[in-house]
């Protein structure tokens, strides 16, 4: 059976979840690999959530939020940006491929951007194969 990656996408309630919605309403083709987790704000995403996603078996994690300066909560996505830097270094030092982690700013109208991000992340993960942090055995 061909390997099909599992991707966790964190979407904020106000922009990128809307973007995902737009992608669906607009019938933009995208691979069915994503598990979307809706959060009120990308600033709510603790880096530990992302690490836990990897340990739970995600092959790639996509973090999305409103564009900088467009945050519903004024400046919370600055926190996302700050914490993402920590995650980048963490993933790199752990020895995971950096392509498995991605940050995208997606507004509610950018359905195509969302669909493309999913396509690219899936394609990358397919090339890389299963994550070395995937759990073994029957889950």
């Amino acid at each position: 059976m061909e390997f099909e990656p599992e991707i966790v996408a964190f979407c904020c309630n106000w922009c990128s979840y809307g973007g995902a919605d737009t992608a669906g309403v607009g019938r933009m083709q995208q691979p069915p690999t994503t598990r979307v987790i809706r959060v009120m704000c990308s600033g709510r995403i603790d880096p530990a959530f992302v690490l836990m996603s990897f340990l739970e078996g995600a092959d790639a994690v996509l973090v999305t939020g409103c564009h900088i300066n467009d945050c519903h909560y004024i400046d919370a996505n600055y926190k996302t940006k700050n914490r993402f830097e920590f995650l980048e270094e963490m993933v790199d030092e752990l020895g995971l491929e950096p392509e498995r982690l991605r940050l995208e700013w997606i507004s509610a109208s950018e359905g195509e951007k969302f669909a493309n991000a999913i396509k690219e992340v899936t394609e990358n993960a397919r090339k890389l194969g299963p994550s070395p942090l995937r759990r073994e055995g029957v889950l």
Binding site: A48, M52, L55, M90, L94, L133, R135, E136, L139
Partner: peptide
């Protein structure tokens, strides 16, 4: 059954 413990992460 994580390969690395969340505590250390």
């Amino acid at each position: 059954s994580y390969k690395l413990s969340m505590f250390h992460m």
